[in-house]
């Protein structure tokens, strides 16, 4: 748990909240900093492990590759993203890491498993709007068309050659990109450049 007064988003120096927002843009960008993120490792073939995690966290471990379980609205609880056959990312609203880690520590003592708080390692960049997929496609080799990337699905891949976890959270579409903090400024600036053509220039 990081002392809140020391906590700073990797994009804090860019003062994103002071920038004008174009209402005509068909793509919007936003940072969602400080999300609770915990990496969980364990053997999903063992039912007691799956059941214990489910009762501790409140949603089932996803076993289908690149799928997500948990609430549509993050404020309603904890989401679990599939990262690998024995690896998951638990995502919860800001400030839940301590409580969640304590719960998991109690739960996991019986198992060969691990939970690590990695909330500081990544920030979340939201990319939404009717042209979001088109803009992201400039630096993403995944097929983001709804027929192959459904709402509620996640995938680990790259954005402009930087590692990213994609989670499609909205039909509009809205994508959340989990970006390592040392790449956050680069990816943000790349996204600003890639989405520039979808933001009409103000007249006068």
């Amino acid at each position: 748990m990081v002392d809140p007064y020391l906590r700073q988003s990797p994009l804090a120096h860019m003062h994103l909240n002071t920038r004008p927002v174009s209402t005509d843009a068909t793509v919007w960008l936003r940072e969602e900093p400080f999300r609770t993120q915990i990496v969980l490792r364990g053997n999903a073939d063992k039912k007691p492990f799956r059941d214990s995690v489910e009762s501790a966290v409140g949603c089932a471990l996803p076993r289908e590759p690149n799928s997500v379980t948990g609430p549509t609205d993050l404020n309603d609880g904890t989401r679990i993203l599939w990262l690998g056959p024995d690896e998951w990312l638990l995502v919860a609203p800001v400030g839940n890491e301590q409580q969640l880690m304590e719960t998991l520590a109690d739960t996991l003592t019986k198992f060969h498993a691990a939970a690590v708080d990695v909330s500081e390692s990544r920030t979340v960049l939201s990319v939404g709007g009717p042209s979001a997929s088109e803009a992201l496609a400039k630096g993403c080799s995944l097929d983001l068309h709804p027929r192959s990337f459904a709402t509620g699905q996640c995938a680990q891949s790259e954005i402009a050659r930087a590692h990213a976890i994609y989670h499609k959270v909205g039909e509009d579409p809205v994508f959340e990109l989990y970006i390592h903090r040392s790449y956050a400024e680069y990816v943000w600036m790349w996204l600003e450049d890639a989405t520039g053509e979808y933001v009409p220039v103000a007249e006068g």
């Binding site: 590759p65 056959p85 080799s141 995938a155 680990q156 891949s157 790259e158 050659r161």
Partner: peptide, 10 residues
């Protein structure tokens, strides 16, 4: 085997 077809760069 888990994620399906992806580009070589991954």
């Amino acid at each position: 085997p888990w994620c399906g077809p992806r580009d070589e760069t991954e």
